[in-house]
Simulated assay, not measured.
Amino acid sequence: MKIRKALKNTRFEKIKLSFNSQFTVQTLINVLTIIVGSFLFAIGVNSFMIAGNLGEGGFIGISIILFYAFGIPTALSNLIMNFVILIVGFKFLGKRAMIYTIFTIPMTSLALWITESWQIQTDEILINTVFGGLFIGMGIGLIIRIGSTTAGTTLLAKMANKFLDVNVSYALLFFDLIVITIGLTVMSLEQVLLTVIALYIATKVMDFIIEGMNPKKAVTIISKDPDLLANLINTKIHRGVTILDGHGYYSKEEKDILFVVINKSQLNRLKRLIKANDDQAFVVVHDVNSVLGNYLI
């Protein structure tokens, strides 16, 4: 526990490496994470998905289709397509994401080339489906977690959001469905449906890697006794509480609004605490993508 606490409190982004003042320990960790993520992704694609004659979503899905149809290596087609879309849509990425993405694209293609012959043949196609989704989700999750991207449909989705006002997640789903549908030209319906299952597994694993073991929830509470609830949250759940000033639009009554960020595992306990002390309290639970700073989180 002491080692974990010490690592958590260490500011790796502040530690400079002697050979380059701009290259910090955190940068080195991020580069190594991209390398590990790229190989996990490549193992998922080559060792399980292609070995089981399955497909994928996104640009790697197109690469797999080209491999099945024309024998074009996935490493080559993935590299070309991703660099082309990066050139077209580079302005949709921040400077940091752009730098890491430029490194990620050739790294994933290199990993795909190295692992090209690492195919695991099994008699049970569900093994390929589950473990393919698992490795791909872990790989992409690690890459995204440090602020990089795999370009591809991520950039297309951001472009669709910019010009067509389409939600990014819906755009990603739309592009993946197009790729999977095209996959019917080289795969059977059963293989395509198994690919959908692998995609679902990859998405869940990716979310787990990005959010961590204890994703956060933000809770807004409007109560007739905010001081009592704030004290209980602070002493029983050991979380800090922010009190915001508010008033009812219709009643014009002044109200204190409680705002607290907790671990997802503590949510049910918080709900029980609120219900036991003010069953008329108005409670809104929000998903939290990221939390910065300590503040008793």
Rank of each mutant, 00 (worst) to 15 (best):
K2D: 12
I3R: 07
F12E: 10
F12P: 08
K14P: 10
I15C: 12
Q22K: 09
Q22E: 14
Q26E: 15
T27P: 01
L28N: 07
V31I: 15
G44Q: 10
G57A: 05
S63V: 12
I65G: 04
F67D: 13
F70H: 11
I72V: 12
I72W: 07
P73R: 11
T74H: 09
L76M: 09
N78R: 03
L79K: 03
I80N: 13
I80L: 13
F83H: 00
I87M: 09
V88I: 11
V88M: 09
G89D: 11
G89N: 14
F90R: 15
L93P: 10
L93H: 08
M98H: 14
T101R: 11
I102V: 07
I102Q: 04
P106T: 05
S109L: 00
A111G: 01
I114L: 14
I120H: 02
T122P: 02
I125Y: 11
T129F: 00
V130Q: 05
F131C: 08
F131H: 10
G132R: 01
I140A: 05
G141A: 13
G141M: 12
R145Q: 12
I146G: 13
G147Q: 01
T150N: 01
A151H: 07
M159K: 12
F163K: 09
F163Q: 11
L164S: 06
D165K: 15
Y170E: 10
A171T: 15
L172N: 03
L173F: 11
F174H: 13
F175K: 04
I178K: 15
L184K: 10
M187V: 06
S188F: 02
S188T: 03
E190G: 01
L193F: 03
T195R: 12
A198D: 02
A198G: 00
Y200W: 08
M206N: 11
M206I: 08
F208W: 14
I209G: 08
I210R: 07
E211W: 10
K217Q: 02
T220D: 00
D227I: 05
L228G: 04
L232E: 15
N234R: 15
R239V: 12
T242Q: 13
T242V: 11
L244S: 05
L244R: 04
E253M: 07
E254P: 07
K255F: 06
I257N: 04
F259T: 13
F259Y: 15
V261A: 02
V261M: 00
N263R: 04
K264R: 07
K264L: 03
L267G: 10
N268V: 03
R269M: 03
R272V: 11
I274Y: 00
D278R: 08
S290H: 01
G293P: 05
N294D: 13
L296R: 01
